[in-house]
Every structure is written in structure tokens, then in C-alpha cells.
Simulated assay, not measured.
Amino acid sequence: MSAAAATALQSSLRISSQKPSSSPGSSQQPNSLSAAKPKSLLHKHPLYSSTHQNLSLQIKEKILCLEIMGIDSGKALSLNPSLHTTSLHSIHSIISFLQSKGIHQKDFPRIFGMCPKILTSNIKTDLNPVFSFLSQDLHVPENNYRKVINKCPRLLASSVRDQLKPALFYLQRLGFKDLEALAYQDPVLLVSSVEHTLIPKLKFLESIGFSTKEATSMVLRCPGLFTFSIENNYKPKFEYFNEEMKGELEELKEFPQFFAFSLEKRIKPRHIEVMQSGVKLGLANMLRSTDDGFKELLREGGNR
């Protein structure tokens, strides 16, 4: 591609980032995508190699558009094959729409990198309902859309009818009443499958001896429990707690955050030190304290 052609193409890909009146206080964004990767880097992209000379101009334009935005085009095209056939006009429309909702241009690499499916969404049937859900169901004001979307870009790739509303209903039925916390701290729970993710985590806690009420209380106190893998987190940690630490379920009920700590880097080494010292130390003090604080606890002989 000649320098003149590249310049013309770059000009054709310009996307206005003028902020709407509904997003006061937002920082001024660049007027185009031209501030991203140098064109020389684009020609080194695998899809530009001599073995891909038969790529259409349309695909090359999309690659350039994605790369200028800071998105790995190869990964995006691989994860979302529909990008091969969607038009640049459609991509630009989605970007403009998100900018109208307060999303900044600098947010796009992470958002689209995590969820390239968004680039081929339907604004009317896919994206608009998500923002209506944020506003009407979670009571998120327009000027905070960006904060929520950046926390969990997968929201934009989730069906409101089939995913977000059922998850919210289930979580509220369990006792999650703080909508602000769900929106800004734990939105990942809303994009988690009720049937395949949320319910199995509760069932596992029940399977190791907790009642339904106790298991529910634990996830309400530590929502992160819903995000941990049963095979890679729960099972090995509980096995160590039960067999090596000889712990009681009451301890886990009081300190469910136990499952949030690394087994190899935190739980095992600190438990070994506690055993060697002969000091009696509760789970919370053993795991929550800093390295210096932990050593101080051992020197002082245990819980304070």
C-alpha cells in the first residue's frame, strides 16, 4: 500500500469522538484513530504477508482499522469470524454508538480485545437493551456507563433476556440487594450462567457439609466464591484444608475468603509455618495479614 493510499485510507477511517451532552466531565478524546500504531507495523502483520496477497481490500481495511484502534486484528478475526463479512460502516456505527454512551476511544482495545463479538453486534437488538438494563434494572446513571462496561466488557456481548435478567433475578432471590455493588464491583456475576456457573458453586458448598442457608450466606459475604473454579480452586483447597489442616467447617463458614487465597503461595506455606511454630492461629489472621504482620503474630504467640 503506498503512503498516499495509506493516508487516504486512514482518513477514511476517522471516527468522531465528540462527547455527548449526557457525559459531562469526560476528558477530550482524539478526533481520529490515527494516533495509534504506525502504518509500518501494519504491513508486518501476518495477514499482510506474501502468502496472503489474495486478501481483499475490504479485509485489509478492516485489519488496518482494528490495528489503528490498538486491537489484535488476527485474534479478533479468529474469535469472531463474522468480522470477515461485516462492513466497515457497521463497525464505525458501533464505535460511534458506544462513544455516544460515554465510552472513550482509549477503552476500545480492552473492550473489543476481550469481546470482539461486540464489533458485529446489532445496535438496536443487542447493544441498546444492555444500556437500558444498566439504567432501568441496575439504576446506573448515564455518566457511569463507562465505569461499569470497563469493569465487565462482556456485558455488551450478553443477551439481556437470556442472560442478564435471569442472573439478576437469581442473585436477588438469593439475597443480593445492593444493586450498586452488583453494577460496580461484581458485574461478572451478571454474565455468569445461572445453570452452569452459579448453581453448581452453591451445590458444591452444600456437598462438603454446609446447609443451603449457610452456603448462601457465604456467597453473600464473599461474592467472589461464584467466580472460582470447582476443579481448580474449591476441590484442591478444601482437600488441603480438610486433610492437612484438619480444619472445621465452622472456620470456612466464618471466613469463606479462604478460597480466594493461593494454595501454593499463601495457604500451604503459612500453614506449615504455623505448624512449625506451634502457635494457634485462626484462618483470617493466618491468611489476611501481611508478611510482616504474619511474622509478628507468630512471635507474639497467636491471635491478638
Rank of each mutant, 00 (worst) to 15 (best):
I123E: 04
H196T: 06
F169K: 05
L189Y: 08
C115W: 00
T125Q: 13
D137E: 15
I123C: 05
L168I: 07
R173W: 01
D178W: 01
E142Y: 13
K124A: 14
C115H: 03
M114A: 10
D186R: 08
F204W: 15
Q136S: 14
S159V: 12
L164S: 09
A181H: 05
F169A: 02
D186F: 13
R161D: 15
P153K: 02
L134E: 02
L171C: 10
K213V: 12
K124V: 14
M114V: 11
A183L: 06
V148W: 06
V188K: 12
A181V: 06
P166W: 09
A183Q: 03
A215K: 10
E195F: 04
N143E: 14
L164N: 08
F112Q: 01
A157N: 11
K117C: 02
V194G: 05
G209W: 11
K147V: 13
E206Q: 15
N144W: 13
I208R: 08
K177V: 11
K117A: 09
F131L: 10
C152Y: 03
Q185V: 07
L190E: 05
V130N: 03
C152Q: 15
I149S: 04
K203E: 13
N128V: 14
P200A: 02
G113N: 00
V130E: 03
R146I: 01
V188Y: 09
V130F: 03
C152R: 08
L202E: 02
D186S: 13
I208L: 13
R161Q: 15
F131R: 07
Y184Q: 07
R154P: 03
Q163T: 15
D178K: 08
L168D: 05
D137N: 12
E195A: 07
F204C: 05
L127M: 07
I199A: 05
F169H: 05
K177L: 10
K201W: 00
L189E: 10
K147Q: 14
S158M: 05
P129H: 08
P166S: 13
D178F: 02
L198P: 02
L138R: 05
F131E: 06
L134I: 04
I123Q: 04
P153G: 05
E142S: 15
H139D: 11
V148L: 04
V148S: 03
I208W: 12
L190R: 04
V130Y: 02
I118N: 00
A157C: 09
S159A: 12
G209K: 11
S211Q: 12
E180P: 01
S211N: 11
K117L: 06
D186G: 00
L174R: 01
M114F: 03
E206F: 08
R173H: 05
Y145F: 15
S158R: 03
Q136K: 13
T120R: 00
I199V: 13
V188L: 09
C115Y: 00
L190T: 06
K213D: 12
S193V: 04
R146V: 01
T197M: 04
E206A: 07
S192I: 02
P200M: 01
N128R: 13
M114C: 12
V140G: 04
I118V: 12
S158E: 03
G209E: 10
K117I: 02
A215S: 15
C152P: 09
R154S: 15
G175P: 08
S192W: 00
K124T: 14
Y145E: 02
P200I: 02
K203I: 10
V160R: 01
